[in-house]
């Protein structure tokens, strides 16, 4: 992609739940404008990694920087400024059930800008149209399908035009066509708005389609087992388990 500026730096990060080690001393970087995928088998700590990157959990040791600011040690004001730079789409969408889609997307605009209602609603409608949900603006989250919820959640995450979007399993549980549409959307947003994407997933078709670079976490060693372009990992990676994962073969353990 354009340039090699590292926008997110993870440095020797270790994560624990109580006594249980989940991630062991990971280091990697995400470049500006790329679609970066974190993948791995079930239970290897993908979502945990993501939750650390967005500051919901504090790592047991190590550091995570967005730009040059550490999200781990940020004080109140720094943290607020950091949070404004990224948007998050959660696995379930996490739309606010008591508000319709338009209000959901409007909420960040309402809280963090001085825009008038008319302007807010227009911007929110634009974001919804970007994800193809303009005509559902007044639906409640409970009235739309799972795929729509995820798209609406992306629209809400983009409300304040963030530099980075974190997506937690965007295509999990969607039918192939809807999943593909979502992938198209991600590529389109990445190309046109130059948004950096950090995506947690294990949907192989989607990884081949969208990922510029992947890291693969290993549940056994709690470390990164592979890093690179998905096509290369499938063909030439030295570890059999990694090749099997990319070729969708069981029995590699």
């Amino acid at each position: 992609m354009n340039g090699n500026e590292t926008i997110i730096k993870v440095e020797n990060m270790t994560a624990r739940y109580g006594d249980r080690l989940v991630l062991d001393s990971l280091s990697f970087g995400v470049n500006r404008g790329e679609i970066f995928v974190i993948l791995g088998g079930s239970g290897c700590g993908k979502s945990t990694m993501l939750k650390h990157m967005i500051g919901l959990y504090k790592p047991a040791s190590g550091d995570i920087k967005i730009g040059d600011v550490s999200i781990v040690n940020a004080n109140g004001a720094e943290r607020d400024a950091l949070i404004r730079r990224f948007g998050v789409m959660y696995q379930s969408g996490a739309l606010f059930g008591s508000m319709n889609l338009l209000e959901n997307v409007c909420l960040p605009l309402e809280e963090f800008t001085d825009l008038k209602r008319e302007a807010r609603e227009l911007i929110a409608r634009m974001k919804l149209s970007l994800v193809g949900l303009a005509e559902y603006a007044h639906h409640m989250p409970s009235e739309i399908s799972g795929g729509m919820k995820k798209r609406a959640a992306i629209a809400r995450a983009m409300a304040l035009d963030p530099e980075i979007l974190f997506l937690d399993e965007p295509s999990a549980g969607l039918d192939p066509v809807t999943a593909d549409e979502l992938d198209e959307l991600i590529i389109r947003l990445s190309r046109t708005l130059n948004i950096t994407f950090v995506i947690v997933t294990h949907e192989l078709p989607s990884i081949y389609k969208i990922a510029d670079r992947v890291i693969m976490l290993d549940a056994r060693t709690k470390k990164i087992i592979a890093e690179g372009k998905p096509g290369e990992l499938r063909e030439i990676h030295e570890d059999e388990w990694v090749r099997n994962f990319f070729n969708r073969k069981g029995g590699g353990e």
């Binding site: 919901l56 949070i83 404004r84 959660y90 379930s92 996490a94 739309l95 606010f96 059930g97 809280e111």
Partner: peptide, 13 residues
């Protein structure tokens, strides 16, 4: 449970 509280937090609300 639906991660909505997390969503509030990461939206800075």
């Amino acid at each position: 449970v639906n991660e909505e509280i997390d969503a509030f937090t990461t939206m800075g609300l």
